[in-house]
Design a protein around this nucleic acid. Structure first.
Length: 934
RNA sequence: GCCUGAGUGGCGGAAUUGGUAGACGCGCUGGAUUCAAAAUCCAGUUCCUUCGGGAGUGCGGGUUCGAUUCCCGCCUCAGGUACCA
């Protein structure tokens, strides 16, 4: 797209913007002070992954909003921390390295330089002295250090806190593990004597099942195409989030984070946060708390029991069969000879299905009888045991008690296999499906008969616990998060192995820097790329080998907001006094796509660091705003099928056409520049083509709103807009597009409106020869009213993050002042301060023209609204009849209700509408409206 | 299916506690200025109309003197999520 812009020299944004950007950089205007009398305000953007494609206009949207707010808070007298950095470990740089051999560090550095250049053009007030990069050894030294703390801690459910593993060891030495209430996965009990008698390997293995980060064989999402495991939030619909490759389940020895320990606190903490309901709900669903009971069913011919989890213990008398996941450990043991081959076949079929197939197959009911029976714990009846893949091995106990009358899946299963369905609900019809509402009364259930569901649940749990066959239980969907990746470009673990026991590397040897490798691929034995490193390249390998995995992308981003407070500290991840001063982030701005990944992990690590008393707060981001996505507006040309003729958009329906994307840079207001487009190899099919034009002789392109992407030729970079219109125009235009949180199509059509506004503002200060002309006189009441109305509205708009209406209000103000021919210094000085967060460059320039010291506008005082200027002697009342506005009447503001009514009814238009009849009722809202009911 | 949001002119959107629906901007129409253009300025721009007025904020009801706003029932779109027992 090419733009035409006024070429006159009146408002020369190029020189102005270059000058002030240099000034800010040179004077470090936006450096945040760690010690200050001022109140602190911490405003943070989600830091970007520096991708090779650079920024498009969607990226800076949130940064512009946060920058406006940061500048506003400075004017309000706050000491503002507003930093920026890079989440610079990640897959694309590594894949580029695999293809080209270029070290990911080089790729990353190049991309960071490009990002920085693009960001700098927009005039952000970041404190760049605090920049962090997660891939920098100075930074990941502390990511490794935090990992070590997690390894050295366990979660005590009595104190509801992480505690040091040394405390756990001393309990084990005195009492064994019987009295310990921990989040763990150790099976069984041991005494103090037994603990002391354990070998080092046994002790290590035991402690491993208590540590907050642990090494364990677990079912993981393995992505063969990427050659790595993925966390649950990195898998979408059975495909990898990056690349969309198939993902399968695999049992692997991996590091995990015991985030489950924090499930309840992560849930409760949401209530204290000022986040959108949508994000909070996403986290709530992800954590997935459900309350119910675990119940043990005895096996018919065995001492073993099957444990199930149910949210509906009230329906226990409705159990007519049980279903185990095909992977359940008891399956082979209980299966009778009669069904052995069928069960083996079913298990095989189930294991061949990928996660994706299994999800796609939801409608198909499958299962297999094992021939075994369990004994109903209350009725003593025999209950068939089946296996079925609708039961997931990884949730709950991997087994369910099936109640067909109360659960649709159990119902379908029973129908499909001809299992008897009996009802335990009073007067509920289950002939068509299960009854899942919780408003029934229980029947046919012995001691539960006649109880409504909620009471029956309590009674059932009481009875289950009394008989010792189970207990009330809370289950979470949230799983522990896999923490290792078989990749090169990530943080190495501060871990080495000796006799296959993992050991931590001493703090004095941190950081463990990434060693060089000859190739960025796995070894021939299938070990991760780091196994290629020469042994002596790992200076601190005190054992047999180093850990070859690296940490996942979310490791570095889980605590970066803390590092900005103290980015160069080589002795601590953040110093106590700095974190005491800055505390948590007051305002966090970023995309909502991180709801169940980054935002959950960062909360988890924050709570952990709080438990260790290393930071004084346990929620990282107090308020959050999620900016919407900016969509691209693609343009199309229409070729008539099997011809070389292109038809303009308005006539395309009259032909059979093929639509082709055309690069938006050759289109202006949907009109195609055929000559330029024909020269581009991508669209040179237009060369020598025939055209059917509009009546005015132009070729009109069609358009569609799509995601911004290279392949759709609809990417708009901020750079060219800054070149054409200036950064101030871009900043205001991005805000003017609509509410920050809303997704919206990018369209440059309106940008000249914002540019006109800034030129109009400039003309308030200058005459036609571009000389500054300002008066020192006392401002008149009209100008004061315009200004103060704007102070009030713009201030309120900022407080509620309504940046788009803020821009409108500036336009209204400048329109009014232009009409008044106002060139009053006092008025314009205040207006300049007010506007400076939105359009900082032009305001710096005007600030100097107003006679102020260069650069001081960033810390000027935000204008104070004075209601006195708003008072009017008269108010124009809109008069409605039955709620429909009919006429207006100007009356003194102070006039009484009765007099207003009298005046209104005496008005000639009122007389006409009353048609001689008296009004039924007259409502007068003083200073607002009048409504006459007839 | 479930959970969140959202539906207003030709377009992006405004209306903050129920009080003049369509602010502001784009686009469009006319006019001034200009040799001409750009820029700038002025006027107009929801729809229908017999020029009195009538209709109107996704649809259908309701509450109210008064509803884009509150309540009930639907429809559509966007995002998230799912054999979670």
């Amino acid at each position: 797209m090419h733009f035409q812009v006024n070429s006159s020299m009146e408002y020369n944004f190029r020189d102005i913007e270059a000058k002030w950007r240099a000034f800010w950089a040179e004077n470090k205007t936006f450096r945040a002070e760690d010690q200050s009398e001022k109140e602190k305000y911490y405003i943070l953007d989600m830091f970007p992954y520096p991708s090779g494609a650079g920024l498009h206009v969607g990226h800076p949207l949130g940064y512009i909003a946060s920058d406006i707010f940061a500048r506003y808070k400075r004017l309000k007298g706050f000491n503002v921390l507003h930093p920026m950095g890079y989440d610079s470990f990640g897959l694309p740089a590594e894949q580029y390295a695999i293809q080209t051999g270029q070290h990911p560090r080089i790729t990353t550095e190049n991309n960071v330089a490009r990002y920085r250049d693009q960001l700098d053009r927009i005039g952000f007030s970041f404190d760049w002295d605090r920049e962090v990069r997660t891939s920098s050894p100075d930074y990941y030294k502390w990511t490794q250090w935090i990992f070590k703390q997690l390894f050295d801690c366990w979660y005590c459910k009595k104190e509801n806190s992480a505690l040091r593993i040394s405390e756990l060891i001393s309990i084990f030495e005195k009492e064994g593990n019987v009295t310990v209430e921990a989040e763990h996965d150790f099976e069984g009990v041991f005494s103090a004597e037994e603990w002391l008698a354990m070998s080092d390997a046994q002790k290590s293995a035991t402690l491993m099942s208590y540590r907050l980060t642990y090494l364990a064989d677990s079912w993981v999402n393995w992505c063969p195409a990427l050659g790595t495991v993925l966390a649950n939030d990195e898998v979408v619909n059975g495909l990898s989030e990056r690349g969309g490759h198939p993902v399968e389940q695999k049992l692997m020895r991996q590091w995990s984070m015991r985030i489950k320990a924090y499930a309840e606190r992560l849930l409760k903490g949401l209530d204290t946060l000022d986040w959108s309901d949508s994000i909070k709900d996403q986290q709530r669903n992800w954590i997935g708390k459900s309350q119910g009971a675990s119940v043990h069913f005895k096996l018919e011919n065995s001492s073993d029991t099957i444990e199930v989890f149910t949210t509906r213990p009230d329906t226990i008398y409705g159990v007519s069969f049980m279903v185990l996941a095909p992977e359940h450990p008891l399956v082979d043991q209980i299966t009778t000879e009669e069904f052995a081959s069928e069960v083996a076949e079913y298990k095989k079929q189930a294991s061949l299905k990928s996660e994706r197939d299994r999800q796609a197959d939801v409608k198909n009911i499958s299962g297999q009888n094992t021939g075994a029976f369990a004994i109903h714990p209350f009725s003593g009846n025999k209950v068939e045991i089946w296996i079925g893949d609708y039961v997931l091995a990884s949730y709950g106990t991997g087994a369910v008690m099936a109640v067909p009358c109360g659960d649709q899946r159990d119902y379908d299963f029973a129908k499909h296999f001809g299992i008897t369905i009996k009802t335990i609900f009073d007067e509920k019809d289950i002939s068509e499906g299960a009854y899942t509402e919780k408003d029934a009364v229980i029947a046919n259930s012995d001691f539960l008969d006649g109880l409504p569901v909620k009471k029956a649940i309590k009674a059932a749990i009481y009875e289950i616990e009394k008989r010792g066959i189970g207990k009330g239980k809370t289950q979470y969907r949230l799983r522990d998060a896999v923490f290792s990746r078989q990749r090169y470009w990530g943080e190495p673990f501060p871990v080495y192995y000796k006799d296959e026991i993992p050991h931590l590397i001493d703090d004095t040897n941190l950081p463990i820097t990434l060693p060089d490798v000859d190739k960025y691929l796995p070894t021939e034995d299938g070990e991760p790329p780091l196994a290629r490193a020469k042994k002596d390249a790992w200076e601190y390998a005190q054992g047999d080998r180093m850990e070859y995995n690296t940490m996942p992308g979310w490791a570095g981003s889980s605590w970066y907001f803390l590092r900005y407070m103290d980015p160069k500290n080589d002795n601590e991840f953040v110093s106590k006094d700095k974190v005491e001063y800055w505390k948590n982030v007051d305002l966090y701005i970023g995309g909502s796509e991180h709801a169940t990944g980054h935002l959950l992990y960062a909360r988890f690590w924050t709570k952990f660091l709080y438990d260790l008393d290393l930071i004084p707060f346990d929620e990282p981001f107090q308020k959050m705003i999620n900016q919407g996505m900016i969509l691209g507006r693609s343009n199309f040309v229409y070729r008539i099928k099997d011809t070389n003729t292109f038809v303009t958009a308005s006539q395309k329906d009259q032909f059979d056409v093929v639509s082709l994307h055309i690069d938006i840079k050759y289109v202006n207001n949907d009109i195609l520049d055929i000559e330029s487009a024909s020269k581009d190899p991508i669209s040179n099919f237009l060369l020598g083509a025939e055209f059917i034009f509009e009546e005015d002789g132009t070729y009109q392109c069609g358009y569609e709103v799509e995601k911004m992407s290279k392949s759709k030729y609809n990417v708009q970079t901020p750079d060219e807009l800054v070149d054409t219109f200036g950064a101030d125009t871009l900043r205001m235009y991005e805000m003017f597009l609509g509410p920050l949180e809303q997704s919206k199509p990018w369209d440059t059509k309106g940008i000249n409106g914002v540019n006109n506004f800034l030129r109009k503002l400039w003309r308030l200060f200058h005459d036609q020869e571009n000389n500054v002309v300002l008066t020192d006189e006392d401002p008149n009441s009209k100008a004061l009213k315009s200004l103060h109305k704007t102070i009030k509205k713009v201030g309120d708009d900022l407080e509620r993050f309504s940046f788009n209406t803020g821009v409108s209000n500036f336009m209204i103000c400048v329109n009014e002042l232009s009409d008044q021919k106002c060139n009053n210094k006092t008025i314009l000085q205040q207006l300049t301060i007010l506007l400076s967060p939105y359009a900082p460059h032009i305001c710096e320039e005007l600030w100097v023209k107003l006679g102020n010291q260069p650069g001081t506008i960033s810390f000027a005082k935000f204008p104070v609204f004075n209601e006195a200027f708003m008072v009017e002697a008269n108010h124009t009342y809109p008069v409605s009849f039955n709620g429909k506005m009919r006429f207006k009447i100007e009356l003194p503001t102070a006039m009484s209700k009765e007099d207003v009514e009298k005046e209104v009814l005496a008005h000639e238009t009122a007389v006409k509408w009353l048609e001689g009849k008296p009004p039924k009722k007259v409502i007068v809202v003083p200073g607002k409206i009048v409504n006459v009911v007839v």
